[in-house]
Amino acid sequence: MRAFTTLTAKVAPLDRPNVDTDAIIPKQYLKSIKRTGFGQFLFDDWRYLDAGDLDIPVASRRPNPDFVLNQPAYRDAQILLSRENFGCGSSREHAVWALDDFGFRAVIASSFADIFYNNSFKTGFLPVALTADVIETLFRELAANPGYTLTIDLPAQRVITPGGLAHAFDIDAFRKDCLIRGLDEIGLTLQHADAIRAYEARRREQAPWLFTNPV
């Protein structure tokens, strides 16, 4: 997995609460059996005026000039700023893959849906939760300062504004460590294969009905 340590990057605003995973990457694109290529369809229903599908080249479609990510100022933004309950809805990890493939490395919002939050780390993508008041301040600063950037310092767990103000954020130790070192979680778990086997042996005794499949 790609590591994440610190990032200083331009910020794009997506000023609405409850940005759901159907909005981040609509269902027709989930038919892809690949892990890449979703960035072109990120926020598809908002980003284009006409309907799209996997087999319709995006170059043939009409971009919505009013949508924030279509504005040249935010083309190279790597941090997305949004409101509460970001990523609510389905479990599709494609939502993270789409944000990542588009070029984002982190989302800052006042809260996240659990599954989206959890999925983010698997791609080396960082979800940062700050209080609603801080988010409001960041939206105001962003609106007032073209080219607004933020620094995310993961080891120090701080978001630092251009004015030098640092906002602390929480992240649990295991996820932080995996992200900073870019660790493969499956490889880590398999280091405990003996513990898993011992658990299974015990469970076969205690709860044999869990191991009686008709297969």
């Binding site: 990890e93 698997k122 791609t123 979680e185």
Partner: peptide
């Protein structure tokens, strides 16, 4: 509970999940 694709792979490979 629902999981993303990386966790689907994790469950397939290890029959476990890292969870809080």
């Amino acid at each position: 509970f629902g999981i993303g694709t990386s966790e689907v792979e994790h469950v397939l490979a290890t029959q476990t999940l890292v969870a809080k």
